[in-house]
């Protein structure tokens, strides 16, 4: 390539009109040396970028990023778990109350004169077996259990009331 050909190509390059092939051609020509000073700047410009073409991230980079992302997710999970715990506690209370209520009621429903018949049927034997001989004791136990449930429910209620009180303060502050 003579000077004029290079000049045309270099101008085309600066104009942003060269194809990738033409840019390769220029680069190869510049690399040969013996270059007119007119093209020194363009040659330097092209070389600036050549040096970073093969550059890649270091080994383990991807794993490092992925592990950081995993770490970052955890705080969100902890926050959600807190509410899950509260929900689980409420469910447990309601469930326990339901089971106790049912078992108490079943014992009530079974009329005394039928008990003997049912005892004869082996299948149901375990189910209707009385736990207390004395009705007074049974009543006491039921009362104890119900009191326990009521106490726990009140605990929750107190917390709720406290928080509602807090909300009221907040609401008042917002209104002012």
């Amino acid at each position: 390539m003579d000077y004029n050909e290079i000049k045309i190509l270099a101008d085309k390059y600066l104009a942003g009109e060269t194809s990738l092939e033409e840019e390769q051609l220029l680069k190869r020509y510049f690399a040969q040396g013996n270059l007119s000073a007119d093209f020194e700047a363009i040659k330097t410009l092209m070389e600036y970028f050549s040096s970073e073409k093969e550059m890649i991230t270091s080994e383990g980079f991807e794993e490092k990023i992925l592990s950081k992302i995993d770490e970052e997710r955890k705080p969100v999970k902890i926050f959600k778990l807190y509410w899950l715990r509260v929900a689980a506690a409420v469910l447990l209370l309601v469930g326990a109350a339901g089971i106790i209520y049912k078992s108490v009621e079943r014992n009530k429903i079974v009329p005394e004169q039928n008990i003997a018949q049912i005892i004869q049927a082996d299948n149901f034997q375990t189910e209707i077996k009385d736990t207390y001989d004395n009705p007074e004791d049974a009543k006491k136990e039921v009362e104890r259990v119900l009191a326990l449930i009521s106490r726990h429910l009140n605990k929750g209620k107190n917390v709720a009331e406290k928080n509602i009180a807090k909300m009221d303060v907040l609401n008042k502050a917002l209104e002012n």
């Binding site: 600066l14 942003g16 020194e40």
Partner: peptide, 20 residues
């Protein structure tokens, strides 16, 4: 795209010539 590349190359070239 071409205008942007043209401007970028021209600017850098001029800066280089100035520096030289």
């Amino acid at each position: 795209v071409k205008v942007n590349i043209h401007r970028a190359r021209t600017t850098i070239k001029q800066q280089l010539i100035k520096q030289l």
